[in-house]
Design a protein around this nucleic acid. Structure first.
Lengths: 250, 250
DNA sequence: ACTCTTCTGCGTAAGATATACACAGTTCTA
DNA sequence: TAGAACTGTGTATATCTTACGCAGAAGAGT
């Protein structure tokens, strides 16, 4: 049973939203959910997401592992909160007359910057739709930016999901390649990324002529400008949205 | 040290590509990588991705856990191979005169169908760019479908990545919501999904007016037609690609 | 045929993991 | 002042991946 009526909210999520006030009955809490999440983020930043264990977090905080369970129902509840705190909120809105496209473009680049600052975040599996305070803030920012587009609320949400998935997936791909290059020991010296090496070794031009051709053009080698690639794809997506918006505002 | 010269390929990946012939020296292998991966897929399909452990797979095959390590370097190597085998290859190509848009649309729907048949696949974290035989086959199919578009190879790859990330993320989101509804016990009876219930409980209309408005319109309740939503977003993305293609072919 | 090499599968065991449960100490409330 | 509620901790369990070494199987070379 939960305290509130109706649907159960995970305890730590309720805490993140500022509900679930802790009545000052027992001894003063030496910890807080935020300190725990911060410690978890530090571990992830230092040694990767795989190093984030309850024991490790507890060690970081100088407490026992079980102490954490007074604040977190399970380890899985921790991961979304880590994302929430590390990525932070959306950029401040510019004037209300900023066009939707410019606003959403800034939205995407800010999100990208947040992911780059916390590359472990790319490894957090997304299991739930946006839940946490900052995620909702991003959603709010997006919906507001799309105010003048004439899209339905449904469509606005779809557009935001589309963009955020583009940002996340694209960065995940770039990061994966970059990591493979580093892991291969070649610190940007060798032209061939280890990835395209593998492809070259493995791919039969008879069976995969198109991939082979692309490979021959060096497509899978280290991209010249990651930002350029990102912006290019982003423009495509925004173009597609623009087609819809124009059909609604005309 | 590896057998081949140059870059190291993970052992099981090499096996998946048919390299790494096992010289018939020792006793005949009672297992094969494919049987192991199949068993792992069965476990995932039956009890979810979290139930996939080396012990469990071994039990399924009637061998000891350590036997698996003769075929797989580590458990992590198993996950991409599971994806590869379960999702399978792209749909057969239609005539060479099929337009790129129709071809890529089929591509996306086929990929979606593959993900729906294996919803555990949505939980497999993607760490590497496409590696495995079937993934390359999907890439090949996409590149071939985009043959007549006048895009550069670079751009074609970007387009394919964009579409595949759209499909995967969108389905992941839908699946997450659907699962939350099931977990809440309401088997499609209750109109409100447990997700929008949570939002309603948690969101302050002052701080998040746009989200609140969308919420009021029932945007976050169970979507009427998941396929409709999916197709709608897909059309937007394809529209954006179309803008680029037109600018190149004109 | 005999030995050597190489490979298979297995048993054991080490180290880490999440977390249930009971307990002692602390602080507010009645 | 008694009781309730909450805190952090220690212990214990079940489960996980995987390193290591061993016995036996099968081909290679003599």
């Amino acid at each position: 049973m939960e305290s509130d009526s109706g649907t159960d909210i995970p305890a730590s999520l309720a805490t993140a939203w500022g509900l679930r006030e802790r009545p000052g009955k027992g001894p003063k809490p030496g910890l807080s959910l935020e300190r725990i999440v911060t410690a978890a983020i530090n571990v992830a930043a230092a040694d990767g997401l795989a190093a984030v264990s309850m024991n490790r977090i507890a060690k970081e905080l100088g407490v026992s592992a079980m102490a954490l369970y007074r604040y977190v129902g399970a380890k899985n509840e921790l991961l979304p909160l880590m994302l929430d705190l590390a990525i932070g909120g959306p950029p401040p809105p510019r004037g209300a007359d900023e066009g939707w496209r410019s606003a959403m473009e800034r939205w995407c680049w800010s999100y990208l910057a947040g992911l780059r600052r916390n590359s472990w975040a790319l490894r957090v599996p997304i299991t739930d739709p946006p839940n946490t305070p900052q995620q909702i803030a991003w959603l709010e920012h997006g919906l507001t930016s799309l105010r003048g587009t004439g899209l339905t609320e449904h469509e606005k949400v779809s557009v935001i999901m589309l963009l955020s998935s583009y940002v996340r997936n694209t960065e995940a791909l770039f990061h994966g390649i970059a990591e493979a290059v580093v892991a291969a020991g070649s610190s940007a010296e060798r032209m061939m990324s280890s990835y395209s090496d593998v492809l070259r070794k493995v791919i039969d031009p008879e069976r995969f002529p198109s991939v082979s051709a692309a490979l021959g053009q060096g497509v899978f080698d280290q991209p010249d400008s990651v930002d350029g690639e990102f912006g290019f794809g982003l423009d495509r997506v925004l173009d597609g949205i623009d087609v819809l918006v124009r059909s609604r505002t005309q």
